[in-house]
Design a protein around this nucleic acid. Sequence first.
DNA 1: GCGACAG
DNA 2: ATCTTGTCGC
Length: 219
Amino acid sequence: MWNKEGFKKAQLVLANKEETFTLDEVHTVAAFDVSFQGHLGIGVAAVFDYFSLDLLECQTFVCEPYVPYVPTFLSFREMPYVLALYSRLQNKPDLLLIDGHGKSHPRRMGIAVQAGLALRKPSIGVAKHLLYGDIVDRERGTYVVDPVSQDVLAYAYREKPRFNPVFISVGAGIPTVEDAVNLVMPLFKGHREPEPLRYVHNVSLNEGRTLVHGLQQTY
DNA sequence: GCGACAG
DNA sequence: ATCTTGTCGC
C-alpha cells in the first residue's frame, strides 16, 4: 500500500537529483493528459511539430489508477500513464508539456518535474489552478512566488483578458520560468490552454465516453 | 486549531 | 478529475 509520508520522502529524495539533460533545439513537443471515467483512467499523449503544430502521433493508454488523488501527490496517480505513453511514442519529443504543476509545488516536485526527471527530457507544467504560492502582480505580469523564499515559481498567463489564468512552471531541464513561458507561448492559439494540451484533453474525454458507451451496449 | 488543496 | 441543465455571448 501507500502512505503520504512515503510519498513525501520519495519527493524529497528526487528533489536533490541532478538533471543531466538540457533543452537543445526544439522541433517537436508532446502533451500528456489523463481523464477518468468510472474506475478507469484514460491517458493520452500526442506529439506535434513545434512550429506548425501539425499532429505527428497520438497514443492512448487505459488502466485503473493504483492510488487515489491526494493533493500534492498527483504524480503518483498519473505518472504510470505518462511513462507507459512515452514508451509507446514512436516520435520521441524534444519537450514535454504536462497538465499540472512543475516546481510550483510545496516541495518543488509537481508531476511535470517528476516526468521530466524520469524520462530525462525537458518538461514544462501548465496547470489550471493554483496549488502553492502567492500571486503577485508585477510590471512584467502576474507571477506565483514562494511565500518563504520569494522564489518565482510560476507565471500566471491569460490568453485573453477575461480568461482565468493558467500557471506555467518549470518542470525539469529548463533554467527559469521565463524560459518556460517563452517556450509555451507559441503554442497558444486563442484558447485558455496551449493547443497540444487542449488536443490530448479532448481525445481523453472522447475515448472515455466511447469506452463507457461500449460497456453500456454489453447490457 | 484553521484554511488550502494540481487532477 | 467527475457528477450535472440551461444559458449568456462572441
